[in-house]
Design a protein around this nucleic acid. Structure first.
Lengths: 149, 149
DNA sequence: TCATCATTCACCCGAAAGGATGATTTAACC
DNA sequence: GGTTAAATCATCCTTTCGGGTGAATGATGA
C-alpha cells in the first residue's frame, strides 16, 4: 500500500532526524563546552524543528489521502447508478442539479412549477440522504458521488 | 457575543505550551530526582509533542494551499492569474475555498481565527467581485473561473 | 507624507435556508 | 385490496445568509 510505505518513510525520516539532532547537540555540548545551555533553549530548538517537521508531515499525509480518494472516485460511474445506490429519487436529483447551478429554493420552485414548500421538502430529504446539513455541502457531496456533473 | 479572536492565537498557544512543558520537566526533575534522564528521552518527548502540534498547526495554516492546489484531474492552471484578473484578494480566495468545501460562515471564521463579521465582509466583497448574490453561485462561478478546483 | 488597498470588526435588518412534523394524492407493486 | 414510495403542500420555529453602512489598522507604494 502506497500510504503505508509513505508513512513508514516519514517515520524513518523522523528517527534519522531525531538521532542526528541528538548527535549534533551532544557534539556541540562536548566540543564547545556549552554545558550551561538552559533547558529552554534546547526545548526551543527542538520545538521549532519538529513543528516544521510536523507541518511538513501533515501536509504529506493529507496529500496522500487526497490522491487515494481521487483515484477511487475517478471511476466512471453513471448518474443513474449513483442515484439508485444513494436512494435519491429522480425529482430529488433534479432539485440537486438546480441547487448546484446556484438557484435559490424559490427559483427552483418556479422552474419546476411547484411550490416553495415542496422544494424545501425535497432539499430536507436530500440532506438526510446525503448526510449533510447545508446546500453547499450537498453540492460538494453530490459531485463526489457523481450524482451531478 | 461575537468571538474576539486574534491571528496570534497559534503563536500564543505555542508559547504557553512551551512554558508549560518547561515547568513540567523541571518539576519532574526536582520532584522525583530523575536527574539522570538521558537527553534522548527529553528530545523524544518534545519531538512527539511538537510534531503533533505541528501537524495540527499545519492543518490550520496550509489548508487553503491544499484546497487551492488540489486538482483532481491534475491539470495545472494558474489560479493566481485568475485571482489577480478578477481582483480577488488572497484572503478572499481562502474564504472562497472554504465556502466551496461546504462550511458555514461561522465555521470559516473559526477555521481562520477571525470573527464572523469579518467573514461576512469577505463574502459580501466576493459576491460583488464575482457578480453573484448567493454562495452557491459564487462557488459555481469560482470553479468556472478556476479560482478554486 | 499621503493615498490606496487589504484585513479586520461592528451593528441593523430583511430574506433565505433549514429542522420538525403532518397530510394528501398518485402510481407502482405484490 | 393493501402496502409502499414518490411527489406534492402546509405550518411553526430557529438559524444562517445577504445587503448596507461605517470604521480602525497596517502594509504598500507613489
Amino acid at each position: 500500500m502506497a500510504q503505508h510505505t509513505s508513512t513508514g518513510k516519514i517515520v524513518l525520516f523522523y528517527g534519522v532526524a531525531l538521532a542526528m539532532l541528538v548527535f549534533l547537540l551532544k557534539y556541540l555540548e562536548y566540543r564547545y563546552l556549552i554545558h550551561d545551555l538552559s533547558v529552554e533553549v534546547y526545548l526551543g530548538v527542538i520545538a521549532v524543528f519538529f513543528t516544521g517537521l510536523g507541518i511538513w508531515a501533515g501536509f504529506r499525509l493529507t496529500i496522500i489521502k487526497r490522491i487515494v480518494r481521487a483515484d477511487e472516485t475517478g471511476n466512471i460511474i453513471s448518474d443513474e447508478e449513483s442515484r439508485k445506490r444513494t436512494g435519491i429519487s429522480k425529482r430529488e436529483q433534479e432539485v440537486l442539479a438546480l441547487m448546484a447551478s446556484g438557484l435559490s429554493n424559490q427559483e427552483i420552485a418556479d422552474k419546476l412549477f411547484v411550490s416553495l414548500n415542496t422544494i424545501k421538502t425535497h432539499t430536507a430529504n436530500l440532506f438526510v440522504k446525503l448526510d449533510v446539513s447545508r446546500r453547499t455541502q450537498a453540492i460538494k457531496k453530490a459531485k463526489e458521488l457523481r450524482l451531478i456533473p
